[in-house]
Design a protein around this nucleic acid. Structure first.
Length: 650
RNA sequence: GCCGCAAUAGCUCAGCUGGUAGAGCAACGCAUUCGUAAUGCGUGGGUCGGGAGUUCGAUUCUCUCUUGCGGCACCA
């Protein structure tokens, strides 16, 4: 006589054990039709699940996030079903739900083509239309292994083999097709209505590059056609803000065959890059950092000492000189900074010593990893190393954390997540040292009042790290900043200071970067703003244009005036209609378009239009110059546009 | 590095089954002197990513290298 408690708190009595489907039907026919699964207590279950005891039950529909997940999971099964009908000797492996969709990995003698994809999608639609009930059955583990071996599904048998003996295994099937699965699933294939296969790719079995490569098919699935369409539109929008595309449109940079993974910065891109550096210089100087510069090429031996060769030798550029010495092109700045620290005798009175460098590093990244500005082989780090005593770790780490978060705020990134990565399998240093440095970093994170999520085994080879991940305008996460506590490298490289006790001690080294890679951060900014960079970062902050030749002199005078304020200004005196010029510079995302006609020359004003198409009307030259200068100096906290509209309404 | 796909004018792209290439935009020239997202007319521009092979003949077919793209793996 189970008593069922519904989400609204109401209770229902049933005479005997009852399925979720029956419960849904007892609430209403509409709900029964929309139902995809149930939640009994905390567990998600199928519609056919038999509730035998008192329980809290809710019905899951496609309005619930769990419902969408179940749809995606069932669509993955539908995909596997279709693939095996069309390619009977393809073996199934795994098919999980991912963000916005799902994938399924198959072992097959050849890769699937895009034609195959179309045929598979077609077959999926046919199976869905058959409205086949999805049924669950349970087998003991060993029997399940024998079953999958018998039907030639060796990967599935292997997966079950890693489940503890004695457990039961559930299988889900539709028609005469069946797959190992924990479930739950939608009750019937007709619930799967809005899906699309998106791409094929290779993927290693169990995610290990030593294993064979499987054929992965990606798809997306939604509760309705409309949601599917919206998703596809969203993909198009994301593509439009791709930094590689905008980089070309705005003439910021290029890449070419002769220098894979290395950027050719054009004047406009370099202006942006330089404004990031000047900004960071200013913030770091204020925070007590001293800027240095260290060699890009140093003897290989130094990298053996540091341990970089052992761990990353394969990924370092090496060069052999005519005198037969082998030099490494630096993949990191740390050993160089330690050399600066080591010059002369250091006293505890100098600590903490914060050495910063905009260091250009080269890493021979795997060819397949390269991606526009986001993953390159030559990049500039806003790197710094803080040499300090054990006692100073916490205070310094708190300062770094606060600085990073404050800097991200200046760029409009408020949503920052922080990950804590502890000791990796391949590392240098004893476990005692690792215990100490992990504890120190944990204490520091707590002192800074930040919440972290654990990223097990993801630390650097010399120490644990905090990773600062920021979320951009369209919800993508980017790891940028990092803070690492290192109790290993200073000793390996022989760094010491004289303590209060007049004895030599080994300093602690904190590694930190805020932008991480300047190249990458530039790419992130471009995508975050879809190219419409805030004025203080825009390569061209304003364009002065005349309507006819008569305003040429005035335009040049205005431009000169703005340039004297340190603004990046261009003139457009071409023999073109003003509409044409407006269009061109709007497409180039120039924040302010300053138009001078006879009226403006007469009144010493400018007609101001923003790139978003807003007409700010005529503004006096002096007011405009100071307004723009203020907008740039305040890094967008005072915006000319707002100020003008405020004054108008006042 | 691995799997797949791609590379044609400065850019975006077309070019069916082999017969040495075309559009739009851009560039250049001329006219136009114009008030907020494209003025008109004209002109020039290509070793069809590199190398090799098949063929009477290769942008097109085959092999190979390079680079890029989508994933996987990697990311100090």
């Amino acid at each position: 006589m189970p008593e069922i408690t519904l989400p609204d708190g109401s209770r229902r009595q049933f005479d005997g054990a009852v399925t979720v489907a029956q419960i849904a039907a007892s609430i209403g026919a509409g709900l029964a039709k929309a139902a995809l699964a149930g939640r009994v207590g905390a567990a998600l279950v199928d519609m056919s699940y038999l509730v035998e005891h008192d329980a809290a039950v809710s019905i899951v529909t496609d309005k619930d996030p769990e419902g969408l997940e179940i749809i995606r999971h069932s669509t993955a099964h539908l995909l596997a079903n279709a693939v095996q009908e069309l390619f009977p000797d393809a073996q199934v492996t795994i098919g999980p739900v991912i963000e916005d969709g799902f994938y399924y990995d198959f072992a097959y003698k050849r890769p699937f083509s895009s034609n195959d994809l179309a045929a598979i999608e077609q077959r999926m639609a046919e199976i869905a239309a058959k409205d086949l009930p999805i049924l669950r059955r349970v087998l003991p583990r060993d029997e399940a292994i024998r079953h999958f071996e018998r039907i030639g599904e060796h990967y599935k048998a292997q997966i079950i083999g890693s489940i503890p003996a004695g457990e039961s295994i559930s299988l889900y099937g539709q028609g005469d097709w069946e797959d190992l699965c924990r479930g739950p699933h939608v009750p019937s294939t007709s619930k799967l209505r809005a899906f699309k296969l998106t791409k094929v790719a290779g993927a290693y079995w169990r995610g290990d590059s030593r294993n064979e490569m499987l054929q992965r098919i990606y798809g997306t699935a939604w509760a309705s056609e409309k949601q599917l369409k919206d998703y596809l539109t969203r993909l198009d929008e994301a593509e439009k803000r791709d930094h590689r595309r905008i980089g070309k449109e705005l003439d910021l940079f290029h890449l070419q065959e002769e220098a894979p993974g290395a950027v050719f910065w054009h004047p406009k891109g370099w202006a942006l890059f330089q404004s990031l550096i000047s900004y960071m210089r200013e913030r770091q100087a204020a925070a007590g950092y001293l800027e240095i510069n260290t060699p890009e090429i140093m003897d290989r031996e130094l990298w053996v000492q540091s341990g970089h060769i052992e761990k990353f030798g394969e990924n370092m550029f090496m060069t052999r000189t005519p005198d037969e010495r082998t030099f490494a092109i630096k993949p990191m700045n740390c050993p160089g900074h330690v050399q600066v620290f080591k010059q002369g005798l250091r006293s505890y009175r100098e600590l903490p010593l914060r050495l910063a460098e905009f260091g250009k590093v080269h890493r021979y990244e795997p060819s397949g990893a390269l991606h526009g500005l986001m993953r390159v082989r030559a990049f500039t780090q806003d790197d710094a190393h803080i040499f300090c005593t054990t006692d100073q770790i916490t205070a310094e780490s708190v300062k770094v954390t606060e600085l990073i978060l404050s800097i991200y705020r200046d760029f409009g990134f408020e949503d920052v997540r922080i990950k804590f990565s502890d000791r990796p399998a391949q590392r240098v240093g004893s476990d005692e040292i690792w215990d100490k440095s992990e504890a120190a970093l944990r204490t520091a994170a707590a002192a800074a009042g930040i919440e972290t999520t654990l990223n097990p085994g993801d630390g650097a080879f010399y120490g644990p790290k905090l990773e600062f991940v920021l979320r951009d305008a369209i919800g993508r996460d980017w790891q940028c900043g990092t803070l690492q506590v290192d109790l290993n490298l200073p000793a390996r490289l022989g760094a010491t200071f004289i303590g209060e006790d007049s004895h030599k001690h080994t300093p602690v080294m904190l590694h930190r970067a805020m932008f991480g890679s300047l190249e990458r951060f530039t790419g992130i900014l471009i995508e975050h703003h879809a190219g419409k960079l805030p004025t203080w970062l825009s390569p061209v902050q304003a364009v002065v244009m005349g309507i006819t030749e008569r305003q040429e002199k005035y335009c040049l005078e205005v431009a000169e005036n703005l340039k004297n304020q340190g603004l990046r200004v261009e003139t457009d005196l071409r023999n073109e209609k003003v509409g044409f010029k407006i269009r061109e510079h709007t497409i180039k995302r120039v924040p302010y378009l300053l138009v001078a006609g006879d009226r403006e020359v007469e009144g010493r004003t400018l007609a101001v239009r923003t790139r978003s198409g807003k007409d700010l009307g005529a503004i006096e030259l002096d007011a405009l110059v100071s307004g723009l200068a203020d907008e740039v100096a305040s890094r967008g906290r005072h915006v000319l546009e707002d100020r003008v509209s405020q004054r108008r309404s006042a």
